[in-house]
Design a protein around this nucleic acid. Structure first.
Length: 425
RNA sequence: GGAGAGGUCGCAUAGUGGUCUAGUGCGCCGCACUCGAAAUGCGGUGUGGGGCAACUCACCGUGGGUUCGAAUCCCACCCUCUCCGCCA
């Protein structure tokens, strides 16, 4: 959600910002509805003020025993009451329209975001490590020979798009989750939380997933939705709160399973575990003061990178172009890990500064200085990281000639072994 | 799922139809007193919207309703707590 004042006072900038993302913002309609809403509101409030005055005087007349005068005053209220009754629904309807329109505006891209429409126009800002040389197996082959994942069982249980991790596969998932959570909390200073995986629609409106992206989500019979990422419950953790300046920045790290319908991705990445309806992810969420949010974005990216560096995996950092970064963000970096068996980079993290966009929707504010009036806080998030694609890169990168998997040092104490033994051993 | 209690201005409480534009205590801020502090006294202390402003409207869990007027009465719902049942 954008600042209403911005749309009123600078509609061209809003239009232009949306256009960079390839989206048409309903600026004219908003301005029209806004104008009529404000005019009706003014009229309604005048009537309410008049009504309050008369009611108060009736109270005083009654108290002083002037019954006749009171009755006379009562008669006066009929017309004005009628006016209120006719204005009220109009006001309510216009405000509802305005609120609905407001939710349709995309966030404005930051000036440092490059132009562009497609992923090809994203800009690589840096790379870490070196691309491993040699011949590599795809992760589904490795998983098969080491019996790490049972896809048949998964499809029997749940249909396509799911995985049953078995044996060392299951232990690896668990080890990666614990390793990443510890890293983000102990080393990078995030507070660990473990939130619900089912949330109300209000929470999803707060993060910007609803109303626009309902098709990406699983819903239930009980008006609860399965979360597509821990971003949703964690961002809503502080909904309707006013934060004091000394509390900021607030940093949360959360592990949750994530559920996505992948409705628009049918037929893509069908092999292996690159695109699942359910997967595990550590998510990082930050709340901070407006003037530091771009510094916090840089450090957020570094925190996500620290996982890949600890595991010694080659990756690159992309600055997404305006057209590829989605509705909600102002500026977004993707982390892509190299998967040698696939021969391509895989997105394992998206680190985004939403500025005040989510905070306005979720009503999360802070006082810039003690005693100052509240402003929407800036919110950022990024994966730190997604498990399945990380697992893919790990298996493909560290498979040795004999078929065993060498485990990077930091992960060993979590997995309880230096190596996943070769098949047959 | 059943029965009961309850949700009020940061916290604690009062308020069962008209000076409630919500009282009191604590906390917090300012001022006075003081060499300074404590104590004391006085004043102030929420959020959102509209308006250039004066000002005004809304908000006592949420949404409806009754009334000239609702924190207060009526209806529905949500949440919390206690007990019972069931259960990982």
């Amino acid at each position: 959600m954008l600042d209403r004042k911005l749309i009123r006072e600078n509609p061209d900038a809003v239009r232009a910002g949306a256009a960079r993302k390839g989206i048409q913002a309903p600026v004219d309609e908003f301005l029209r509805v806004d104008e009529s809403w404000r005019s009706i509101l003014r009229e309604l409030e005048q009537s309410q003020a008049e009504m309050n005055r008369i009611s108060k005087s009736i109270g005083q007349l009654m108290a002083s025993g002037q019954k006749d005068e009171a009755e006379k005053a009562k008669a006066e209220t009929a017309a004005i009451k009628e006016k209120i009754k006719s204005l009220e629904p109009q006001e309510r309807e216009l405000e509802a329209q305005l609120n609905a329109l407001e939710l349709q505006f995309p966030n404005m891209p930051h000036p440092t975001v490059p132009d562009g429409k497609t992923p090809e126009e994203n800009v690589e800002v840096r790379a870490w490590g070196t691309k491993p040389e040699g011949t590599f197996k795809a992760h589904w082959e490795i998983a098969d020979e080491l019996k790490l994942i049972d896809f048949e069982a998964a499809s029997k249980i749940s249909g396509s798009g799911f995985a049953v991790y078995t044996g060392w596969g299951s232990k690896l998932v668990r080890a990666l989750i614990n390793f990443m959570l510890d890293l983000q909390s102990d080393r990078n200073g995030y507070s660990e939380v473990y939130p619900p995986a089912l949330v109300t629609s209000e929470s999803l409106v707060g993060t910007g997933n609803l109303p626009k992206f309902a098709d990406d989500l699983y819903s239930t019979k009980d008006d609860l939705w399965l979360i597509p990422t821990a971003e949703v419950p964690v961002t809503n953790l502080l909904r309707d709160e006013i934060l004091e300046p000394w509390q900021l920045p607030i940093k949360y790290a959360a592990y949750t399973p994530c559920f996505r319908r992948e409705a628009g991705a049918a037929g893509r990445d069908t092999r292996g575990i690159l695109r699942m309806h359910q997967f595990d992810k550590i998510e990082l969420v930050k709340y901070c003061a407006a003037e530091v949010s771009y510094d916090e974005l840089e450090s957020l990216v570094e925190d996500a990178e620290s996982v890949l560096q600890a595991l010694g995996l080659h990756y690159r950092v992309l600055l997404l172009c305006a057209g590829d970064m989605g509705d909600k963000g102002c500026k977004c970096y993707d982390l892509e890990v190299w998967a040698p068996g696939e021969g391509r980079y895989l997105e394992v993290s998206s680190c985004t500064n939403f500025e005040a966009f989510q905070a306005r929707r979720a009503n999360i504010r802070y006082r810039p200085t003690e005693g100052a009036s509240p402003e929407p806080v800036h919110i950022l998030n990024g994966s730190g990281l997604a498990v399945p694609r990380l697992l893919v890169a790990l298996l493909e990168t560290y498979r040795q000639e004999d078929g065993s998997i060498a485990i990077p040092e930091p992960l060993r104490r979590y997995l309880g072994t230096d190596v996943i033994p070769a098949p047959g051993n």
